[in-house]
Computed example of a mutant assay.
Amino acid sequence: MNWITDEYKEITVIVEDKYGSKYVYIDPEEDKDWFNCKYRLVLNKDDLTVDRAEIDEKSFDNKVIMGGLYGVDKSIFKMWTRKAKLIIDNYETTFSNPEYD
């Protein structure tokens, strides 16, 4: 996925184990609670492939797809349709833009 921009920006990424699955919540804004995140992924507990994906509380269906998908929405859709495997590292990650260091 190409989410690189020229400006510095923090995002929200939350990973939780619950209900026998791994949930990943992502939002383009910082400090969001899990229930307010724009993107929600549910990963299969055994192989960490994407079992379910939601954008703005909408699961993928014909209405969402027919409306057209672009950017991150399109990338998340591809992850879901291809049953992509996500690798979750267990460490705190900080990304920085050298122009702002």
Rank of each mutant, 00 (worst) to 15 (best):
K83P: 08
V42H: 02
E57P: 00
E10G: 15
E92M: 13
M66P: 05
T81C: 04
G20D: 11
E54W: 01
T81Q: 06
P98Q: 08
P98I: 11
D27P: 11
N2E: 13
I87H: 09
K74W: 07
T94L: 14
G71A: 05
M79H: 05
F60H: 04
K9H: 13
A53H: 07
D46N: 15
E92I: 12
E99M: 12
T12Y: 09
L41D: 04
I4P: 02
F60L: 03
M79N: 04
D61P: 03
N36C: 05
Y39V: 00
K78M: 07
D56I: 00
A84I: 00
S96E: 11
R52F: 08
Y100K: 13
V64M: 05
Y23E: 12
E10C: 14
I4E: 08
R82W: 03
Y25W: 10
F77P: 00
T12A: 12
S75A: 10
E7Y: 15
D61V: 02
K74Q: 09
E10W: 12
E7R: 13
S21E: 11
V72G: 02
D101L: 15
F35E: 12
E16K: 12
N36H: 09
E30C: 13
Y8G: 13
S96N: 14
Y100A: 14
E10A: 15
N36Y: 05
S75R: 08
D89L: 08
K85G: 10
I4R: 08
V64C: 04
R40A: 03
K85N: 11
D47K: 08
E29H: 12
D31E: 09
D6L: 10
D56A: 01
Y19P: 07
D27Y: 06
K78R: 12
K22M: 09
E57H: 07
S75K: 09
K83C: 06
G67K: 01
I26V: 07
D101H: 14
K74I: 01
M66W: 11
N90V: 07
I55M: 00
G20A: 04
A84D: 09
G68N: 03
D51Y: 07
I26R: 11
K85C: 04
L43M: 07
N44I: 00
K45Y: 15
F77I: 03
D89P: 09
D47F: 12
D31L: 04
E16C: 06
